[in-house]
């Protein structure tokens, strides 16, 4: 059991409201996508969950225990922070060994295997790692920690397309073998939309959406075809976004997916496809 319960969480930085009365439950063994624009409060929320920061109001419980200075519950989390918290002059291999001291279930062989797979030089000092390799290193520590709750804050920062793909595949492999509660905070929504099972969208410190990816994607649809046909079809629909390419258009619509037998669709050769999570996100977070 590693259920996270957040109750009426509020965080002020001086007079600035960073987290605004958020209440939510993170159920165990699911992959959550924590989405939000820059400065929405994603990192603050993760820092609060890991006791790096302290809430102004509200509380966070893991397995019904308050996390405040609670070593038992905090040791169930490994947090891949965007900030580099590792000793700069220490070698990567040494940091891995020290991390094993603090996480008894740490899988040293897996960490070395992943280092090899990602071509991470274990003899490098931490400060010598590029932004991308620092992210890879932190990903390796997080996955190898074998903690029941893994939090990733911008895990793909500085990663090239190949490494991003490797990370997603590794995460899926890991998750399929070791069911774990995972929260990924990221900007690259399109890339994670196939991985995440639950979506949390934060806007201006408020949780504005918490639902399964499936429900969100089926709450609307994309219609594509000739621009005039799409416009005609959209007349009485709730359009959340449009893309134009020459005479063709794609529109993103909220509402029930029309049946394939819809006479207008058949007559006009319009195509219906799945809603784009990123479009949905942009629509919801555009003020």
């Amino acid at each position: 059991m590693s259920k996270i319960k957040i109750k009426n969480l509020t965080k002020y930085y001086g007079k600035n409201l960073a987290i605004d009365d958020i209440s939510l439950e993170i159920t165990e063994n699911k992959i959550y996508g924590l989405l939000g624009r820059n400065g929405a409060g994603k990192t603050t929320l993760l820092n609060l969950i890991t006791n790096k920061l302290f809430p102004t109001n509200g509380e966070i419980l893991i397995d019904s225990e308050n996390i405040f200075e609670n070593e038992r519950v905090l040791s169930q989390i490994y947090y891949m922070s965007e900030k580099n918290l590792y000793p700069e002059t220490m070698k990567v291999k040494e940091i891995i060994k020290w991390t094993k001291d603090f996480y008894p279930n740490f899988d040293l062989d897996y960490a070395y295997k992943l280092s090899d797979k990602f071509n991470l030089n274990l003899k490098s000092k931490f400060k010598a790692l590029s932004t991308g390799y620092a992210s890879i290193f932190k990903i390796i520590l997080t996955l190898s920690s074998r903690a029941p709750i893994l939090l990733f804050d911008e895990p793909i920062l500085g990663l090239d397309a190949n490494h991003r793909d490797m990370f997603y595949k590794e995460l899926i492999n890991y998750y399929s073998v070791t069911p774990t509660t995972v929260i990924i905070s990221t900007h690259l929504i399109e890339e994670v939309s196939d991985i995440i099972e639950e979506v949390l969208i934060i806007k201006d410190g408020k949780l504005i959406l918490s639902d399964t990816t499936e429900n969100i994607l089926f709450s609307g649809y994309t219609v594509s075809g000739k621009a005039e046909d799409v416009d005609a079809f959209n007349k009485d629909k709730k359009v959340i976004g449009e893309d134009n390419i020459g005479k063709f258009k794609s529109a993103y619509i909220l509402g029930p997916i029309p049946s394939k037998e819809d006479p207008y669709l058949n007559a006009s050769n319009l195509e219906i496809s799945k809603l784009d999570l990123q479009k949905m996100f942009i629509q919801l977070t555009n003020s």
Binding site: E71, L85, E88, T99, F102
Partner: peptide, 16 residues
């Protein structure tokens, strides 16, 4: 600072 950061990276409580 360096020790504090590393302990925080490993989710060690401040008391610990």
């Amino acid at each position: 600072k360096e020790s504090y950061y590393f302990m925080q990276a490993n989710n060690i409580t401040r008391k610990g």
